[in-house]
Amino acid sequence: MQDLREPQNDIHREARLLLRAARAASLAVIEDEYPALALVTPAVTLDGAAIVLLSQLSAHTRALDRDGRCALMVSGAATEVNPQTSPRLSLVCDAERSDDPADRARYLAVHPYAGFYAGFGDFGVYRLSTVAARYVGGFARAATLDVARLGPMTGPLCDEAAAAAAMAAANRERAGEIDAMAHRHGGAGDGWRMVTLDADGFDLAREDRVLRVALRRSLRVYGELMIEMNNIAPPTQV
């Protein structure tokens, strides 16, 4: 099989890892002809699009409904005392309401606590389709990104059924190892389960706690998961 994976220090891979690990982000919208900011809690679909759960009672949601142009920024932990040493990713997006059950399921897998209110009539999932992206990964490491490389590199990696089958096999056959991974990433207790999977890693959940685990090498097909689970990247702070 041809290996299309980027090297570990590839700036597009770093950006994907940062976005998929983010549990909070700043969302900029156009409100009354001026930019306005809101704190949101994103998730990322299998094909690399950011999704957010928003209430119609919020001004930023109503602004998005009027004008879907927006921007999303996520950042990681600073490596030095200067906050500007933190990696960050800025996405320019077009937002639209999503009624896709897969988007809602993905969001709630990453933010299970939101299940309490996600069914309220004023809440809905919005998909943010990226049209431009900028990443700053440290000194002299700023770049405008190729948007296509923020998603899966091959068609098989967009296969929801294949990802679900690989997760089910891992949960069934590697339960003890999954618990051990969760413990290394700051989790406690047993009974952790893999709840999302993509080319660059997966999320483990126990009750309302969710931990992101990155792979050292991106998957080419989901059938490689069992092998690559032996090659886990160290925990990172976001």
Rank of each mutant, 00 (worst) to 15 (best):
L19P: 05
I11T: 13
S98L: 05
A166V: 13
P101C: 03
N171P: 07
A205F: 04
A164Y: 07
A114F: 11
P234H: 12
A50M: 11
L37F: 08
P42H: 02
H111C: 07
A180C: 10
Y222I: 02
P7M: 09
I232C: 04
F202P: 03
Q56Y: 06
I11G: 06
L108M: 09
L145M: 10
T45Y: 09
A71Q: 14
D99N: 11
A162Q: 10
A50W: 02
S26I: 12
S58Q: 12
D47L: 03
A148P: 04
S86P: 00
R209K: 13
D65T: 08
A175F: 04
E14D: 11
A188L: 15
G121P: 01
G76S: 08
S55E: 06
M73K: 02
G151Q: 13
A205I: 01
T41E: 13
A175C: 04
A22D: 10
M153Q: 06
H12Y: 00
Y135I: 08
V131T: 15
A21Q: 15
T236P: 00
A143F: 06
A199L: 01
P83H: 06
G201H: 01
L219K: 01
E224K: 02
P87A: 09
V40Q: 05
L91F: 11
P101V: 03
L150N: 09
A166Y: 11
R174P: 03
P152I: 04
L39N: 11
D99I: 10
A38G: 06
Q84D: 09
E6R: 12
A132H: 11
D10W: 10
V213Q: 03
F139V: 08
A15L: 07
A233D: 14
